[in-house]
Design a protein around this nucleic acid. Sequence first.
DNA 1: GTGAAAGCGCTAACAT
DNA 2: ATGTTAGCGCTTTCAC
Lengths: 354, 354
Amino acid sequence: MVSTLRDVAKHAGVSVATVSRYVNRSGNVRAQTAGRIRQAIAELGFRPNVVGRSLKTATTRSLGVVIPSLSNPVFADAVSGIGQTARAEGYNLMFMATDYDRDAETQTVGALLDYRIDGLILTVSDPGESPVLDLLERTGTPYILIYNQFSLAARPSVTVDNVAAGHDAAEALIGLGHRRLGMISGSFGASDRARARRDGFVRAARDAALAEPVVREVDFLTMNVDAILDDVFKDRSRAPSALFCSNDLLAISLIGALRRRGVRVPDDVSVIGFDGIAVGSHQHPTLTTVVQPSREMGQTAARQLLDCLNGGNAPTGAVLPHILRLGESAGPAGKPDPAALQEPDQTVQRRTAQ
Amino acid sequence: MVSTLRDVAKHAGVSVATVSRYVNRSGNVRAQTAGRIRQAIAELGFRPNVVGRSLKTATTRSLGVVIPSLSNPVFADAVSGIGQTARAEGYNLMFMATDYDRDAETQTVGALLDYRIDGLILTVSDPGESPVLDLLERTGTPYILIYNQFSLAARPSVTVDNVAAGHDAAEALIGLGHRRLGMISGSFGASDRARARRDGFVRAARDAALAEPVVREVDFLTMNVDAILDDVFKDRSRAPSALFCSNDLLAISLIGALRRRGVRVPDDVSVIGFDGIAVGSHQHPTLTTVVQPSREMGQTAARQLLDCLNGGNAPTGAVLPHILRLGESAGPAGKPDPAALQEPDQTVQRRTAQ
DNA sequence: GTGAAAGCGCTAACAT
DNA sequence: ATGTTAGCGCTTTCAC
């Protein structure tokens, strides 16, 4: 059914080497010969077998991608960027999601290594203490992290400065006059970036001499925001007037839950998210959030990895600038003054971290 | 750096054949020999090279996945389901998005074929007239469509009955008392399912002897809903009181745009979406929508394909039931009567199509 | 239970 | 400019 180089060679009356040269544009082939080969290829519907090539060249022209989940558009966007850059260079993607399961990380990366991917782009739960990264180092597989915060071990990663970003989120709220801040986050255990955002956020509150922010974890699968809200707003006098969510999906849930219990956003409580997923800016109220350039992060990671594979330097990672996007979900603290309201959806570039 | 079967064999003092048998659990190996091999593998950090195996067995244990975009969570969910099922059987995914570009479809599928994927799961822009599907038929590659409507050519596809679903959406609105319906859709040219949904929707309006629904296409990339709304609501007296969107992302945009211009949802205009993406039910108002079981669709497609690869029958496709999810975004027509409002987020199973 | 050897489809010396 | 050939890592007869 499928034909091989040999079939084509026989059909065109040349040797396999010549066909190979023609197909790969390596070495010269006389125009007339090329014509015969072209015709043979067309007649047989020949498609080169990458498996044979890979075995010989010890290279697969495929990149592994391992991320926690596709359910969060932030990762999907990054994968889009990776795919675009990879495809432009003729690379394919072998893809797997781990669903935030550490064992799946190891298993998945192992499988990818068996496929002899040329390099790997991944997000792990903890880059400081990761058997997966050790395995990659040991086997000498080029890799680059994405989203993961830099750790002491200095693993290359393409990310924003999550600490600075968390700090900026707090400052934005403080700038609006909020004095009692809170943060609601997904599992800190499964996300080094959530921890970093929290650290920056809390530090900003301290820097401004505010009371220690309320910080709560919410179970990511059930997204049971209501239980958290009951707790946070138990004591209305000490309840936060502004909440920072560790990601936009959570922020959107939170706003829905608040409004469903009659709390007005932003009039009663301001909300700021993190990620900058597209749906946030199409909502009502539009979501105020710290935007990560996810697509660009994917592109950058892919670019660095591909450069490395093309004989360049090892990936170094990159800290990309985050952007504060002002939407309608965060407003001035206290009695709302319409004149003081932000113009919705105004986008303000903030500093690059580091 | 990486060791081979031969290295292990030498290290353990056995032949490569025996190591191969041990690794693949094919044929018997004496316990003592197995022990030596196990140790050699551990010491050398041996990982079998799938490329060599694939060349020999003419099978890669990898599935191709080609979908229009990862930006819409509905596809991301399906890919999750595919990945889960594939991984459970030890299959890997080679993944590519086409960004709704027909040429990219062909190019991408071609690349995947060169990698000798064992089978392919894909969504095409037009299954009736698709060079890609012809190519797959010609090469005898097992494949199954997903989301695509069945066509005359009877390509196997895992989908909901989009015509019936569009019909149900209209009936739901009509049941709430709406008499003037409208539909806003992404490009019909790039989506056979959008066309099918429209057909069912329009037919239901006719069946109910209503005026022909207003139908408008919106550019998917810019999502410029406002221009459409200006047009649709130009003549308030004839403007629709309920709008059906061809997908949830669009519905969410639409609701935001409506509210931003002071139109209350659902008090003034009801909105119903399509897909059932998670974020819709966390919004305020919660989104009324026709839910596709995306994850399950992915699982079903993967299962049928894998069964086929394991020597079973060719994939037949499947029509999975859709579900109408009643949220807050659709309410009674005319003067809203609080007592008559639906209980939010109540989920009602509807008939399976066909 | 184990080993020897052929060969999957391709590329890259090397030879002509 | 083209042909011959070895061999990439593995599985799988076929012997023993």
